[in-house]
Simulated scan of single mutants.
Amino acid sequence: MVLVTGAGGQVGTHLLRALSVKGISTRAWIHSEQNKEAVLASGANEVFIGDLNSRDDAVKATNGIDTIYYICNTANPKEDEIGADLIEIAKERGNITFIYHSVMHSLLSDMPHHKRKQAVEKTLVDSGIPYIIIQPTVFMQMLTPAVMSIKNGGPFVQKFYTSDQTKMSYVDMKDYAEAAAEMIASGAYTYGTYEFCSEGAYSRTDMENILSDLTGRKITSAFISDEDFLKASHNTADSYQGQTLLTMFRHYNANSFCGNSFTLTQILGRKPTTIREYLKNALQG
Results as ranks from 00 to 15, higher is better:
residue 135 Q to W: 11
residue 256 S to V: 06
residue 238 D to A: 06
residue 267 I to Y: 10
residue 178 E to M: 00
residue 45 N to D: 13
residue 14 H to D: 01
residue 211 L to N: 03
residue 269 G to T: 01
residue 262 F to T: 15
residue 18 A to H: 05
residue 188 A to P: 01
residue 50 G to K: 03
residue 140 M to G: 03
residue 125 V to Y: 00
residue 62 T to W: 00
residue 212 S to W: 08
residue 211 L to I: 03
residue 63 N to R: 05
residue 106 S to P: 08
residue 12 G to Y: 00
residue 258 C to N: 13
residue 61 A to I: 00
residue 136 P to H: 13
residue 183 M to F: 08
residue 51 D to F: 11
residue 51 D to Q: 07
residue 160 F to G: 05
residue 181 A to D: 09
residue 179 A to P: 09
residue 87 I to S: 01
residue 103 V to K: 04
residue 29 W to D: 00
residue 146 A to L: 02
residue 116 R to A: 13
residue 185 A to N: 12
residue 55 R to T: 10
residue 154 G to P: 07
residue 280 K to L: 07
residue 88 E to Q: 12
residue 31 H to M: 09
residue 180 A to H: 06
residue 66 D to W: 11
residue 56 D to T: 08
residue 20 S to I: 03
residue 275 I to S: 05
residue 167 K to M: 13
residue 174 K to Y: 08
residue 141 Q to T: 14
residue 108 L to K: 12
residue 86 L to F: 14
residue 149 S to K: 15
residue 108 L to W: 14
residue 25 S to D: 14
residue 177 A to F: 00
residue 181 A to R: 07
residue 248 M to Q: 14
residue 90 A to M: 05
residue 29 W to K: 04
residue 58 A to D: 02
residue 255 N to V: 12
residue 25 S to C: 07
residue 19 L to P: 02
residue 39 V to F: 04
residue 103 V to W: 12
residue 37 E to R: 06
residue 212 S to N: 07
residue 161 Y to R: 06
